[in-house]
Every structure is written in structure tokens, then in C-alpha cells.
């Protein structure tokens, strides 16, 4: 009888010790390859340059831009408010606090979207969440926001509205006075008209 009791007690004590010896749980479990594969296929990680522009203009506090290019390139030109984490330093523990959070949407960008996606992949594999990649990178940013091409007159109103938003956004980023305060495309439309006048007068 007593033996049985002590046996059970011994088992529990041993299990307790095993728990003690077990390594402390890692902060985040690694993301499963299948999950990553799924997210890549669904392209949920891409965010368009239009969306990024809109959020910068609206001074969205939940947006955190991360420039994954070399420090030189970053210093030469970067998007407003962007932080610099070169791709080769993406795993450095210094950046853990910045990347491991859920308050903000982190948007990686590089000149195109390949390096940014690679950075996304490594951060995502570490289990970090709310990570995105700016589609097409800075090359696309300049082609769509800074110097958008005018759509042909036959294009849909949606396309024309998108173009007008881009034009206004471009002027905003070039240091113009345009302040697009609303996400609403109609507001953007009104502002754009005003801006077109200024453009004719003085170039953007």
C-alpha cells in the first residue's frame, strides 16, 4: 500500500524534474513550410503601391515600412518613414523587437520585390506575423506613383480614378501641397483636379 503511494509520488516527482530539465520554450514556433507555401500561393503577402501610398499619405500609424536594400541605397533614397534592415541582417537579434510584433503591418520593399519577398520569407519562417511585401518594389513605386502613365481614354472609370489618385499621390510625394486626406476615391478625384492645374503651371 505504502509502496504504491510512494511509487506514484516518485513518478510525479520525476515528471516534475523532466519538466524542469526540458529546454525553455522558444519564443515562437517556426512557421510550417506548408503554411508558407499556402500564403505564397494565395499572394496574401503582396500589397500594392497604391495601398502603400494611400497609407503613407494618411499617416497611418499601423504602417511600418522596412527597406531591405543596402544602407547606401537607403540613405540615397527611401520611402517616407521607412526603417532600414538590409536583407543580410534580417536575422540579426537586434531587429527582433521591431519585427516581432502585431501592432503594425510591416511592409518590406526593395528595388523589385524579390529581395523583399526573401526578407518576408525569413521573418515569416521565424513565426512573425503581419508581414507584407510591396508589389514591384521601388521600381514599381516610381512607375506607378511618382511617374504614372496615363491610361487610354477608353479605359474604365476605375482605372482613370486610380490614375488620378496616383497623380495626386505623386505630387504629394514630390513635396507638393496636395493633401489627400480621405481614402474615398471621390475625394482624391476632387483634389487631383486642383493639382492638375498646378502641374500645368509649374511642372510637378
Amino acid at each position: 500500500m505504502n509502496l504504491k503511494y510512494s511509487l506514484l509520488a516518485a513518478i510525479l516527482v520525476i515528471l516534475g524534474f523532466v519538466l524542469l530539465i526540458l529546454p525553455a520554450k522558444e519564443q515562437l514556433p517556426e512557421t510550417n513550410p506548408e503554411v508558407l507555401q499556402y500564403e505564397l500561393n494565395e499572394v496574401t503577402h503582396f500589397i500594392s503601391t497604391d495601398k502603400v501610398a494611400e497609407r503613407i499619405i494618411n499617416q497611418d500609424p499601423t504602417l511600418l515600412l522596412i527597406d531591405v536594400r543596402m544602407a547606401d541605397d537607403y540613405l540615397n533614397y527611401s520611402l517616407p518613414g521607412a526603417e532600414n534592415i538590409p536583407l543580410k541582417e534580417i536575422l540579426h537579434p537586434d531587429w527582433d523587437d521591431l519585427l516581432n510584433q502585431t501592432d503594425r503591418d510591416i511592409v518590406f520593399y526593395s528595388n523589385a520585390d524579390v529581395y523583399a519577398e526573401q526578407a518576408w520569407m525569413f521573418a515569416r519562417r521565424k513565426g512573425y506575423k503581419k508581414l507584407f511585401v510591396m508589389q514591384g518594389g521601388l521600381n514599381n513605386w516610381f512607375a506607378t506613383i511618382i511617374q504614372p502613365t496615363e491610361p487610354p481614354e477608353t479605359s474604365s472609370t476605375k482605372e482613370i480614378e486610380a490614375y488620378q489618385f496616383r497623380k495626386a499621390a505623386g505630387i504629394y510625394f514630390c513635396g507638393g501641397q496636395a493633401i489627400v486626406s480621405e481614402v474615398n476615391p471621390q475625394d482624391a478625384l476632387v483634389i487631383t483636379r486642383k493639382n492638375k492645374k498646378t502641374k500645368v503651371e509649374g511642372g510637378c
Binding site: 540615397n76 523589385a112 521600381n139 505630387i171 513635396g175 507638393g176 501641397q177 510637378c204
Partner: peptide, 24 residues
């Protein structure tokens, strides 16, 4: 080489913001 910049970003920005640089 898609990661090569297609523009000289800094120069282009300066050029484009020329007329407005007083505001900056």
C-alpha cells in the same frame, strides 16, 4: 536583374520636387 534600380531615385525625386522644394 530585376533588383537593379530602373531610375536614379534620389536624382529623379529632386528633379520632380524642384518646383515645390520651397515647401519642403
Amino acid at each position: 536583374m530585376v533588383e537593379q534600380p530602373k531610375y536614379n531615385f534620389a536624382a529623379l525625386m529632386e528633379e520632380l520636387s524642384d518646383g515645390n522644394s520651397a515647401i519642403k
